[in-house]
Amino acid sequence: MVKPPIGIEVVYAAVDRQVLLSVDVASGSTVRDALRASGIGQHFPELDLEHCPVGIFGKVLSNAETQVLAAGDRIEIYRPLLADPKEVRRLRAAKAALARIKSDSQ
């Protein structure tokens, strides 16, 4: 007996635009299979769909080649971070501390 296809979503947000695609894939498809079938690469040719970091509903996947999808899953493709969030917070705190010191001395 052939299983019916399942509906999933594939989403990617570039700096200037975002795309959410609803896709039907064969039951038993992996995340990488769904990425290839979605056509998202046509919208963003710069994406390396074979190696880009991905997750399902905000949970990063360690092995997208073997992760089987369930109906209703949303695959999220992640961009590389341009700045380390910890470093950004540290710099912001240092700037705020410097501003407090300047305002206290006046």
Rank of each mutant, 00 (worst) to 15 (best):
V2H: 12
V2D: 14
V2Q: 13
P4E: 14
P4Q: 14
I6A: 14
I6Y: 12
G7T: 10
E9I: 03
E9T: 11
E9M: 12
V10Q: 04
V10F: 03
V11Y: 09
V11W: 02
Y12P: 02
Y12S: 04
A14C: 04
Q18A: 13
L20C: 08
S22L: 07
S22P: 02
V23A: 05
V23M: 08
D24K: 10
V25F: 02
V25C: 04
S27I: 02
S27T: 03
T30V: 11
V31M: 05
R32N: 04
R32G: 00
R32I: 09
D33V: 05
A34Q: 01
A34D: 03
L35H: 09
R36Q: 12
A37C: 09
A37T: 07
G39S: 15
G39N: 15
G39L: 15
G41H: 08
G41C: 11
H43D: 04
F44Y: 15
L47P: 02
L47E: 00
D48H: 02
D48S: 11
D48Q: 06
D48E: 04
L49A: 07
L49F: 07
L49S: 03
E50I: 06
H51W: 04
H51M: 07
H51L: 09
P53Q: 09
P53K: 03
G55N: 06
I56Y: 00
I56R: 06
F57G: 05
F57T: 13
F57V: 11
F57I: 10
G58S: 09
G58P: 00
G58A: 04
K59M: 04
S62Y: 04
S62Q: 12
S62I: 06
S62T: 10
N63R: 15
A64W: 08
E65K: 13
T66H: 09
Q67L: 03
V68Y: 02
A70Y: 02
A71I: 00
E76P: 00
E76M: 02
I77G: 04
I77Q: 02
Y78F: 15
Y78S: 00
R79M: 05
R79C: 08
R79P: 00
R79I: 07
R79V: 08
L81F: 12
L81D: 10
L82G: 15
A83K: 15
E87S: 14
E87P: 07
V88S: 09
R89G: 11
R90L: 08
L91N: 10
L91Q: 14
R92W: 03
R92A: 13
A94K: 10
K95T: 15
A96D: 14
A96L: 13
A96S: 11
L98P: 01
R100F: 12
R100P: 06
K102D: 15
K102P: 06
K102M: 14
S103V: 13
D104W: 09
S105G: 00
Q106G: 12
